[in-house]
Simulated scan of single mutants.
Amino acid sequence: MKTLASLVAGIIFGAGLTIGGMTDPARVRGFLDLFGDWDPTLAFVMGAALIVMAIAWRVVPGMARPLFDDDFHIPGKSELTPSLIGGAVLFGVGWGIAGLCPGPGFAALAIEPLSAAIFVVSMLVGMALLRLMEGKS
């Protein structure tokens, strides 16, 4: 049941990204172009996500446990590390260049498979290289 719930959540997430236009790199780059032809669509998508999460953060404390797991897996606060800051910078630069981030990148595989595949493969290679550099398997 947990796998099915994850699949349904992923499908809903991908559909939302597609309907919101976030699988279109030009739309994302348009949002980042503050002094050109600015496209506010991404701001509305982010705003909707914030509303959903605000509701979730209010509901979760009142629940004994999640519907499809034994415990909640809520991240704790952690220190800002050079690795975290470097990763955030690299993510932002890549997002600005490609106009995609991981979620929309995978969703875009269904719409523009070739260009999205280049992004997804590059992202996966980068993740593998990081694991090798950090000595993780």
Rank of each mutant, 00 (worst) to 15 (best):
G92H: 05
I12W: 11
M53T: 11
P113C: 00
K136T: 05
V8F: 15
P113T: 02
G30K: 01
H73K: 14
L32A: 10
A107N: 01
A110C: 08
A64N: 06
V8T: 13
R29W: 02
V28N: 05
F72L: 13
L114W: 07
G10T: 10
K136D: 10
T81M: 12
P40M: 01
L80P: 04
I97E: 06
P61T: 04
F72Q: 10
H73M: 13
R27W: 04
I97F: 14
A43W: 01
I12M: 15
E134T: 11
G36F: 10
R131F: 14
R131Q: 13
E112P: 00
I118P: 00
C101L: 10
P25W: 03
E112H: 07
M46E: 07
G36K: 09
P113N: 00
I97C: 08
L80H: 08
M127R: 07
I11D: 04
G76L: 07
S78K: 10
A117Q: 02
G92M: 11
L109M: 03
G103V: 01
D39W: 03
L67M: 10
A56T: 09
P102R: 01
F72E: 11
M63Q: 14
P104H: 03
G30N: 04
M133Y: 07
S115V: 02
P82D: 13
A9G: 09
I118T: 05
G86M: 09
D33T: 02
P82W: 15
D33N: 08
V45P: 00
T81Y: 14
E79V: 08
G21L: 05
V28A: 08
G92I: 08
P61A: 06
P61W: 05
L7K: 13
A128N: 12
